[in-house]
Design a protein around this nucleic acid. Sequence first.
DNA 1: TCTCTCACTTC
DNA 2: TGAAGTGAGAG
Length: 599
Amino acid sequence: MSLSMRDPVIPGTSMAYHPFLPHRAPDFAMSAVLGHQPPFFPALTLPPNGATALSLPGALAKPIMDQLVGAAETGIPFSSLGPQAPLRPLKAMEPEEEVEDDPKVHLEAKELWDQFHKRGTEMVITKSGRRMFPPFKVRCSGLDKKAKYILLMDIIAADDCRYKFHNSRWMVAGKADPEMPKRMYIHPDSPATGEQWMSKVVTFHKLKLTNNISDKHGFNWPSDHAAWQGNYSFGTQTILNSMHKYQPRFHIVRANDILKLPYSTFRTYLFPETEFIAVTAYQNDKITQLKIDNNPFAKGFRDTGNGRREKRKQLTLQSIRVFDERHKKENGTSDESSSEHATFSCFAQASSPAVSTVGTSNLKDLCPSEAESDAEAESKEELVPETCDAAKISTTTSEEPSRDKGSPASLKPHLFGAEPSGRARDSARPDKASPDSRHSPATISSSGLAMSPFGSLFPYPYTYMAAAAAASSAAASSSVHRHPFLSLNSMRPRLRYSPYSIPVPVPDGGGLLSSALPAMAAGPLDAKAAALAASPASVAAVDSGSELNSRSSTLSSSSVSLSPKLCSEKEAATSELQSIQRLVSGLEAKPERSRSGSP
DNA sequence: TCTCTCACTTC
DNA sequence: TGAAGTGAGAG
């Protein structure tokens, strides 16, 4: 029983979406119901507001990443820190005075990202790790100045395809390779106050991309808490598959301690223009040139200057001219002008409303196949400017609350772009002022997304503008229909998504940590199980099931079998519970886990 | 396709 | 000054 790496891309429940999700969270929750405490949480006590939290005395405080990395590098198995470290329960976690926040995130250097995106951004991955360029930078606003936040970033597979660069364009070359271990990058300044975050551009330039599955820059969560196992690890390098398409995600978590992450609400933001294909060597010359032109470190390769590129150019200039002359005479024309847009086709298509389909999910719609004719490609090129214009509407995303828990049908316009998102949304939310031009005019409820019975792409403008996926639902575990833009989720005001909930009393007016989904609080496992059989309509009330509904209703070619999954989950739940019992009883040694994680 | 080394860059 | 970040290009 294991979710695929790409699972979070799939629209689903906010719970299922949670990056750490705890595909085994329900198991743990069940154990809690039965009175078992998670292993390594020696004296777990529940704070008065119902939240469950622990903190490490300073040891894991800021800068979190440095210390986590340090622990990893010094060979200290992080998983061993749990029982040995002086864990202490948060005694009286006073219900904080929680100032309402309404985070908005603005992508920095959007124009540059757009330039790359329309050509099909490539990011080089190496064994030792390469940085992203352009670097992922955002500016936050709307945070509670005094509250502390942890900012994170991860990169998820954008679809289920493997690509190849053929005839100057990216084409689908088959099904995606097996997923790599998932990694979450915690911004090294975390946690910091909202004021601090808002005072500067938050940059994730230190995150590196690698194709080295043995990479040692990752480490598991310092606990054998079931919810953390086998899902995400943390690290400064994220492992990707070459020739696969990826989508970076940005997360805001209101929490003053990293150990509260599993219990906290994630607000997730996607910027479609940051999508890219991982490569070990650049495929598209235009991307190479863009990198050279814009990356300071690549200055030496610019035409202007005395770098080796210039020297080399001079040396080969003559031979190139001879070749060009001959080539033109033979072909009469050059494909130079068309290749630029052509290379973008697979990117543009993935986000263009024009290619949304109604009906079952069709990979070919997501990823242009090689069989696609040039004529078709040409026609798609015309979409490019339009799509880009839509993208320019805003780079600021907002996690907007949704009060729309309507039926799937009522949400279809959001999903398929039948009408401008703002209109549809505004009509459903008359009390919500029209968003300004910088902010998302659209808000999609998680249930709506999850309930999409068609598996079609989310229209680009909508997804783009409503990228706030707070709680964003990107979850789910379908191996076929997954698209980050579908992972939009919003909830009724202030009802934020909690990674998983522990079934404890949740008093009204509780803090952030008490915002677990009611359905899950009532019994996560049961809720999930119920959701398995739920009809699309019923999912509106059971967020945790939306993932599954989405899966069952959208995948025509999915290999996922729901019932077996449920069975296996229950079996695993039982096994997990037994394991926890043994651990609590000290009868079982902690399993040593690979720091780099395993798929 | 991928890995490694190189010359060149920034910081 | 040196560590680290670049794409090129050979293999």
